[in-house]
Amino acid sequence: MSEPQVGRSPFDPARDETFKRELVTLIPHLRAFARTLTGDPTAADDLAQDAMMKAWDARASFQLGTNMKAWTFMILRNQFYSEKRRSWRQSQLDQEAAERTLVAVDDPEAPVALDELRLSLAMLPAEQREALILVGAGGFAYEEAAEICGCAVGTVKSRVSRARRALQTILEDGAYDRDGGAAGDAMYAILADAERLSTLR
């Protein structure tokens, strides 16, 4: 899989149609990946749309029949990081906000292990979070994730494993140490939820 390049393409409507059809099926997945990268639904959709346009512009460099999902995910990821470099300060503020929110969760009745997972994910370093998402939720093999992230397979594996351990720690100890009790509540909720989900199948 090569770096996507924008270039002048010979006008090939049939090829464009095929390309477009496949790109459309990937939109939901790109939106989901963008959401995990940005944490904010509006920013995520902007990012996903930018990535789609870039993918369209670079369509001549894509070999039909190869892994378009990985190719578009790579484009989206690159777009995210180049935008992030431009707005580093904003992402710092987002991280701080996420941490404040995590600590401030006060209500023992609060049901949402899902939100706690999201917030915990936000606390991970970006490269661990994306590795974990690609392999653990995006359905990519380690080799594919490595191509998307532009690193070695071993690097992805260690990032995923560190992310998993860190998540577990955050969920078990992290912000739930209020009043000395409640530690592990989020983990317990996730366990219970996961069991309920798997029995639904």
Binding site: A113, L117, G136, A137, I190, S198
Partner: peptide, 11 residues
Amino acid sequence: AIGVKLRQMFD
């Protein structure tokens, strides 16, 4: 359990 939840979040 974390994996199940991750996939649910993504899906």
